[in-house]
C-alpha cells in the first residue's frame, strides 16, 4: 500500500501540465514549437474562456493552435503572432490583459487600495500616540480608589 502511494506521488510529481496539442499539429522544429506553445498559453480559448488554447480541446482552440503555428512557421515574431490574433478577437483573447489607459484601474486598483489602507492605518496610529497616556492620579483620587477597593473587599 505504502509503495503504491509512493509510486503515485512520484508519477504525479513527474507529470507536467497536459497540453491538448496533437502530435500531428506540432511543428517539426522544436524551437518553433516551443515558441508556439508559449504564445498559445497566453491566448484564451474563446469557447471555454478560462483555459488557454494550448489546454483546451475545443475545435476553435485547435484551429487557433494550428493558425498560431502557421504564423510562427511563416516567420512572424511572437509579438506579430499575438497581434494577428488580437486584431481578430480583441484584447479579451489575452489571458494577461495589457497595461494601457483602459486597464489602468484593473492594474492600479489593488495598489491604490493598499496605499489607501496604509494611509488610514498611519493616521489611526498617529492619532493614538498623539493622545498619549492619561495624566497620573491625584492624591485625592488615590484615596477614593483605595476606599472603593476596601469597600468591595469587605462585602
Amino acid at each position: 500500500m505504502r509503495k503504491a502511494l509512493a509510486l503515485c506521488a512520484c508519477l504525479l510529481a513527474l507529470s507536467g501540465p497536459v497540453l491538448a496539442a496533437d502530435p500531428d499539429e506540432m511543428l517539426k522544429d522544436p524551437a518553433q514549437e516551443a515558441r508556439a506553445e508559449k504564445i498559445g498559453q497566453g491566448l484564451r480559448c474563446l469557447v471555454c474562456q478560462s483555459e488557454s488554447i494550448e489546454n483546451s480541446n475545443a475545435d476553435l482552440a485547435r484551429d487557433l493552435r494550428v493558425i498560431v503555428r502557421e504564423r510562427v512557421k511563416a516567420g512572424d515574431s511572437d509579438r506579430q503572432v499575438v497581434g494577428y490574433v488580437v486584431a481578430r478577437y480583441g484584447d479579451y483573447v489575452l489571458l494577461k490583459p495589457p497595461f494601457k489607459a483602459r486597464t489602468l484601474v484593473l492594474w492600479g486598483g489593488p495598489f491604490a487600495l493598499l496605499l489607501g489602507a496604509l494611509g488610514v492605518l498611519v493616521v489611526f496610529f498617529r492619532r493614538r500616540s498623539a493622545a498619549g497616556s492619561p495624566p497620573p492620579l491625584t492624591p485625592e483620587e488615590i484615596r477614593r480608589l483605595d476606599a472603593l477597593l476596601k469597600d468591595s473587599g469587605n462585602s
Partner: peptide, 14 residues
C-alpha cells in the same frame, strides 16, 4: 474548412 481561416478572420467564437 478547418482551421477556418475566413471565420477566424471574422473573429468567430462559435
Amino acid at each position: 474548412p478547418a482551421p477556418g481561416h475566413a471565420s477566424v478572420d471574422f473573429g468567430v467564437t462559435g
